[in-house]
Write a protein that binds this DNA or RNA. Structure first.
Lengths: 184, 184
DNA sequence: AGAGTGACGTTCGAATTTGAACAACATGGA
DNA sequence: TCCATGTTGTTCAAATTCGAACGTCACTCT
């Protein structure tokens, strides 16, 4: 516990750029999705996560972990989306505690309409601006950051798996269906 | 309006890494700050932004822009912090509409106690994991992303200035006082 | 079998955030 | 001077988020 290791100028730039870019980006994406499709940012992510999950369903805890959101928060949102018919709940036969959130056809249809808009915006605002090297740095660097945080305290194991894209798993669900690409 | 330019695998990795890392990081930072100092994430940022602003004060709109937050949200938080004695309001003599949020000595003292913890966490979770090249990529790439978004629609001009760290301005306030480094 | 431990999803109240509407003011030109 | 336009900060109701407490259940060890 020596003195604090303060950030140098470049680290400061990196930190503000990181937080500011995220805030700005997320704000735009959310506004667009809400205006054009009535979806909040979180709701879009839920649809996307479910769409490329095996069987288009995920357990609540897994979903909460992947989205880095509280359990209670997810319960609320799934409730809203269930009212809207985008998702339905299915209790797990093998484990009475578990509940699956299942993407309905209606939810899938909405996602398919919303996804092009979403992806186009992300590309335009982020990837069209970054160089290939910078994209790789993001993927590698922040990927590692996520993995470590998810592994350590406070993190949820699910978040790590999502990020890791580890080994054979990554390619498994990708490519077979249109579904696979709607995530991002 | 051609087909959607979907994301390739590396872009997908980058996107999830970006959002996940931010969510995980912010969550930890907020929990720590709240537990040890009773500060929410936004409140810490407010203190930090004010601390290295000329005169330790900023107009509400500027602050809201820099933090990428809504005006009403800032009004609320400044209200809370004013109750806590961390900040006070000062009306602008030259413009009756404008209101300055001013950092009090008490607020400054709290920031000085909280900053080491904050910075240490950011360093440990982020910068200790990234390579120097990756740090530069973050600063440059996401800096440019922020700048463009702030300039375009929906963005606030203040956010751009924050990010730009342009030219001589960056060094101006840095180094002279302890104050300058508490931001990040 | 039975107790202990931990995971799961929900509920609840409090805190926060959001967006639109608003009143007061500044600024520019007719 | 006076009006039109755009800003600034606040208010309000509704929506969302958070954390802790709960009830239910699975799993393990004895």
């Amino acid at each position: 516990m020596g003195h604090t290791r303060w950030l140098n100028d470049e680290e400061k730039r990196a930190w503000t750029a990181f937080t500011t870019a995220h805030a700005l980006l997320y704000r735009r994406i959310e506004q667009r999705a809400k205006r054009k499709f009535g979806l909040s940012g979180l709701q879009y992510e839920i649809l996307a996560r479910l769409s490329d999950a095996p069987n288009r369903e995920l357990r609540m805890a897994e979903l909460a972990g992947a989205l880095v959101n509280s359990k209670s928060g997810l319960t609320y949102q799934i409730g809203q989306m269930e009212k809207a018919g985008l998702v339905r709940r299915r209790s797990c036969p093998s484990d009475d505690r578990a509940v699956f959130a299942v993407l309905t056809d209606e939810g899938m249809a909405l996602l398919e309409r919303a996804a092009p808009d979403h992806v186009e915006l992300v590309r335009e605002l982020l990837f069209d601006v970054l160089t290939p090297d910078q994209v790789r740095a993001l993927a590698d660097g922040l990927g590692e950051v996520s993995r470590r945080m998810a592994a350590g305290p406070g993190g949820t194991r699910a978040a790590a798996d999502r990020t890791a894209g580890s080994g054979a798993g990554a390619g498994a669900g990708a490519g077979a269906e249109v579904t696979a690409d709607l995530g991002t």
